[in-house]
């Protein structure tokens, strides 16, 4: 138990140190974007917010994976040896970076979306504020969870590929693919198939591929139309893939990461 506590303490110490060195500016940007989301969602409905959410969500994925980039540099250039020489294990080192690049910013963005609502106008939580919206609390929470899971999942996958390939390029490529290219490619594929066959609704199921990577998009696509999925169902795939990515990241760090 003591050893476990010591390890957690070391991970937190290293995270705090990395945070002070690397990511302050990017954190500030992420929090500002989170607050913008929050303000937008107070005065607009979630359906109105969705397209903006897609664009901002995608940019946030890129922003967070950029925070993780210096870890790859540290591994390739040798900074990591100095940190590991202090008794930090490979797993602890990667875990501290994961916290800095993924957990802290996602938490910051989640809180930046949710908290201003409480501060600015708590009464708005329980009233309908636009003809488009439902009550704000469930909408806001669903929205905040969805975007947080989207970030967690996509950045974790980018982080995983970057770590395994020891390449920032791989991390950025995966994140860009998931954030921008995949939705675009799927839409194009469905459109082409629809044009060729004249039967659009039949190919709607292809969008299910987006479930783990873009819950916000999935809300838009599956809240009406030929395939209907509940909000909870939409949130499960990204949770599963995030946990799976995290296990692979930690396993790689412990058993395969050579520096």
């Amino acid at each position: 138990m003591k050893n476990y506590r010591e390890r957690v303490k070391k991970i937190m110490l290293q995270s705090e140190y990395l945070l002070s060195l690397k990511a302050t500016a990017i954190y500030i940007i992420a929090i500002i974007i989170g607050i913008m989301f929050s303000l937008a969602s107070i005065y607009r409905a979630i359906s109105f917010l969705a397209p903006i959410g897609f664009i901002f969500g995608s940019f946030l994925v890129l922003l967070l994976i950029i925070i993780a980039g210096p870890m790859i540099d540290e591994i390739n250039e040798g900074h990591i040896q100095l940190y590991l020489a202090t008794g930090l294990s490979r797993l602890e080192y990667v875990a501290s970076w994961y916290i800095v690049a993924v957990v802290y910013p996602v938490l910051a963005i989640f809180l930046a979306i949710v908290l201003p609502v409480l501060i600015i106008d708590p009464s708005s939580l329980f009233t309908r504020i636009s003809p488009y919206s439902q009550r704000l609390v469930p909408t806001m929470l669903t929205f905040a969870f969805a975007i947080s899971l989207q970030l967690l999942n996509n950045v974790s996958l980018g982080f995983l590929f970057g770590l395994v390939r020891k390449s920032k390029g791989a991390a950025y490529l995966v994140a860009t693919f998931l954030a921008f290219l995949l939705p675009f490619i799927l839409s194009v594929v469905i459109s082409i198939l629809g044009i060729l066959t004249g039967y659009y609704e039949g190919y709607h199921a292809i969008y299910l591929l987006m479930l783990p990577f873009d819950p916000l998009w999935s809300y838009n696509v599956f809240s009406y139309g030929p395939i209907y999925l509940s909000e909870t169902t939409i949130l499960i795939p990204p949770i599963v893939t995030t946990i799976f990515s995290l296990i692979l990241i930690l396993n790689h760090a412990k058993h395969r990461l050579e520096v």
Partner: peptide, 21 residues
């Protein structure tokens, strides 16, 4: 046993790369 071994070793790498602090 990387943790228990490394905490007993001091290491000066050939080309150490330091953070800008």
């Amino acid at each position: 046993d990387e943790y228990s071994v490394r905490r007993r070793i001091g290491y000066l790498p050939e080309k150490p790369v330091y953070p800008y602090v």
